[in-house]
Structure formats: C-alpha cells, structure tokens
Design a protein around this nucleic acid. Structure first.
Length: 427
RNA sequence: CGGGGCGUGGCGCAGUCUGGUAGCGUGCCUGGUUUGGGUCCAGGAGGCCGGAGGUUCGAAUCCUCUCGCCCCGACCA
C-alpha cells in the first residue's frame, strides 16, 4: 500500500476525549473515529488490525473443531421471554420495535438464539458434542461507556456455545475451550491469565475470566506470583499449570481462606479479554432443548458459553505494546509487517530503489506500507513509529551512496545497515 | 442514576468574571526554501462561538431551558 493514496488521518495532538493510552493512540494513528458515546467507526488501518485479530481467533477456533455460524444482530423478544432474561437483562438491552410493532432487541449475547437453533436441528445424542461459534457485533447499552473500544456499547465479540450430553463431557469441552483460548492469546502476542470468576446472570457454577495485566484495566485480580515466572507456550502443559495456580477475581477472592501466603500473592489490575462459563442446563431447561438419549429418553443439553472481546482486544494489545512514540504491534496483528520509508522523494536513485524494494516485497507476499509522500523526514519517521509497523526499511541518498539501506526494529529501536542484496534475507 | 468538568475553524486552546460584532498554535491550500527525527519564510481559505428562548441599543460573554461529550462512583455475559 502506498501511503500517498491511503486514508490515514493521523493526529499530532491528543484529542481531548481520550484518557487512556490505547484510546489516544487509536485516535492519533487514525485507526478509529468516534461516532457517539461508545460507538466507533473503524478506519482502514484500524480495520486491518481488527480483522487480523478476528482471523487469529477464527483460525484457533476452527483448528479446535469448533464450527462457525453467523446469527443476526437482531433477535425477537419472545426468545428472551422464554429463557426469562427479557426482563432480567434490564436497561443494558437495546429494545427496538419494528413497523408491525413486533418487539426486537439488538443482541447483547446469543444463548437464546443458539439454543433455539440447536433444539430445532439436533435431535439425537449422536449429534453431540458440538461447539458452535460466531464473530458478530453486539450491543450493550452500558451506563457509562469509556476508554474507547475497551468499553464500547457496540463491540465485536466471538461467542461460542457448547452442547454436550452430560456434565462430565461438558466439563471436558470447557477445558478444550480453555486450551484453545491459551493458544489464541499466545498467537495474538498477549500473556493472559485465567482467573476464577463469578458466573453472573449467565448462570452456571464454573467460570473463568481471561485477563491481561494492565494498570488501566477495570478489574481487580489476585494471583499467585508464580504466574509471572511462567513462560507460556499455549500447550496442554500450560493449561495444567494454570488450572492449579491461584488466581481470583476480586469478588471471588477471600483473604481469610486464601491458600496462597500473603507474600506470594499479587494484587493487580487486569483487562478482561475473555470469559467462559459452564452453564449446565440453564437454557436447555427453560427453552426445552433436549436430545433423544441411548435409552430412548429425552435428555436436556449440557451447555457452556465462551466469549472473547475481539474489538476490546485491539485496545488491550495497545495497552500491552506501546511506548512514548506510539504503538508497537506484535507481528501477528500488525496492520502491515513492513514500513518502507523513502527519505527523499524526488531523488531518482531513492525513488527507483524504493519502487524496486516495494514491488519485490509485494511479489513475496509481504504486507508493506510504502511512505512515498512528499513529506519531511521527521514526519515520515514519526508517522511510522506512531502506527507501530514492526519493521521499517529506511531508504535515502546517504546510505545509497554506499549501496546501503537501513532496517529498523520498532520495538527495540535497533537499526542495522545492510546492502540491497542482503535486504530480503534479513527481514 | 448521583457527583464533577467541558462544548469557540479539522485538532488543541485563549477570550466569558468586568457585554461592544472572534484570536493563538497546529492542521489544510499556494509559492518559495530545506532534506537522516513532526524544516523555515511569505501569502491564503476556513468559525451563525452545541441548540432554543429571554434580558439589552448591542450577547461567545448575563438569565432560563435543552442537547451532546468526558471524568469519578454505582453497574457490567
């Protein structure tokens, strides 16, 4: 992509509305623009990141054998009356009436919708177990939206729902999802800790939240310091270690009965990026979702619900990866992998060299953002640093005189000179 | 919902107390200049001061109502 023809409305100054670093940087780097409180436009650069995150989540789900569906954002009120949550959910639910006075709602979650599908089409124990998921926009009319996409009213969520024949199998599925989450977060470049949590209005008796440590997090968590030393690889072994580690949401933490000694316990702020529940037969009971069992008896489905906040993850990633100059994207979610800077547009050697590098990288399938604008050097450097492209290739007459270009690592700031011939092996 | 703050060119702000027809920085456009960290100089476009009503000869400024946004708290699968 050529920056001269891209749409990247960067801001030099921080908009007054933004308080936390991820929100500021998302606005300044032209990733998002606010439409109204808690509702945002995703501009080209931001959308690329959002889609990367979404794709990593999707692939991890698919690899685990979970099946993607896409349900409507609007749901009929009757479905929620059936589960008893239409009244219970309160003002957070955005209720809508259509021209025929039919009562609809913009889905804040989709347990009812998915349970309705499953009860209609899954009739036999042979159809189980199954995990269905979607990545769809949700709306919750939060009392106070804040922190940009971290606590928006409209947000993109991956929500999965599992259906098993019995509790034992359901708990095994819960564990599989947990493992899938560890893989997902690892791939995203985040160190996430599962903490025991309240089940809240979703119901059930087993629940974990996944948190990324950040001073700007909204949740208080207590955990065993041993977690800090773990080098997570996203495998089965990690899962066992994590399951045995003490980590609690503040509502679950009881200082009097905590098995971890005080000096071994950390208290910190976390951003909740995922939440999983074993909900038992809560929905299958109220909505009469059963399958025929082996013995010819109707058996209510055992279910679980598993969320990942996809749009929130974009904010959380920035909270975890930034410096004074801007964002530092992990490779896996970077909107572009390589930023190519032409320091002297109009200099024929610089122009030609950049064009050649640009086309070579494109032909290698690399995602490259070429700053071919007629701007000053400082502007180009700061733009590239601000938007956080992991690797920068800097091309200018001074280096080219000796046949060199420069490769800069955004994270470390390290710059190395290399010849044009060597360039492609070194990035 | 309780408490607090803010709405003035795209963005960041001053002007409001003490009423007299809007200013600075940045961004944008033009021309020149500069070229390894947000160059420098000159010229220019752009604002019914969130909205409505009122007071006044005259309102960004005073009064009333209203809308929006932000922060703290409560709330939050």
């Amino acid at each position: 992509m050529r920056l001269s023809t891209y749409f990247l409305p960067t801001l030099k100054e921080t908009p007054n509305d933004a308080q936390i670093v991820s929100h500021r940087l998302m606005l300044r780097s032209g990733m998002i623009a606010q439409e109204c409180a808690g509702i945002y436009h995703w501009l080209p650069l931001g959308l690329r990141v959002l889609q990367k995150v979404e794709e990593i989540v999707r692939q991890s789900m698919n690899e685990a054998g979970f099946l993607e569906v896409l349900m409507p954002t609007l749901q009929p009120a009757e479905l929620w009356e059936e589960s008893g949550r239409y009244d219970a959910y309160g003002k957070e639910m955005l209720r809508i009436t259509d021209r025929h006075d039919r009562r609809l709602l913009y889905g804040p979650t989709a347990e009812e919708a998915i349970t309705d599908i499953v009860r209609r089409f899954m009739k036999s124990y042979k159809d189980l177990p199954r995990v269905l998921y979607q990545i769809q926009w949700k709306f919750r009319d939060e009392i106070r939206p804040r922190f940009g996409v971290m606590r928006g009213r409209e947000f993109l969520m991956k929500d999965a729902y599992s259906f098993d024949l019995d509790a034992e199998s359901a708990r095994e599925t819960y564990r599989r999802v947990m493992h899938t989450y560890m893989v997902t977060f690892k791939r995203l470049g985040l160190k996430a800790i599962p903490v025991r949590a309240d089940t809240g209005p979703i119901g059930g008796d087993l629940s974990h939240e996944f948190h990324v440590f950040a001073s700007t997090g909204e949740s208080d968590i207590y955990y065993d310091k041993a977690f800090d030393a773990l080098d997570l690889k996203g495998d089965e072994n990690d899962l066992n270690q994590l399951m045995n580690l003490y980590a609690m949401a503040d509502t679950m933490h009881d200082p009097k009965n905590c098995p971890v000694p005080q000096e071994q316990l950390n208290h910190t702020k976390g951003i909740e990026i995922g939440h999983i529940f074993y909900s038992g037969t809560k929905y299958s009971d109220s909505m009469k979702a059963t399958v025929m069992g082996e013995m010819g008896k109707q058996i209510p489905l055992e279910s679980g619900c598993y969320g990942i906040g996809v749009s929130r993850l974009v904010g959380a990633l920035i909270e975890a990866h930034h410096d004074d100059y801007g964002i530092i994207w992990p490779e896996s979610v970077a909107p572009f992998k390589i930023g190519l800077i032409n320091l002297k547009k109009g200099d024929s050697l610089s122009d030609e060299t950049c064009e050649k590098i640009y086309h070579t990288l494109l032909s290698q399938g690399k995602e490259v953002l070429y700053d071919d604008r007629d701007e000053s050097i400082g502007v180009k450097f700061s733009t590239m640093d601000l938007i956080g492209i992991p690797t920068q290739i800097i091309v200018g007459p001074r280096g080219l005189k000796d046949g060199n270009v420069e490769i800069k690592n955004r994270r470390t700031g390290e710059k190395i000179l290399c010849t044009l011939d060597n360039l492609y092996q070194r990035i």
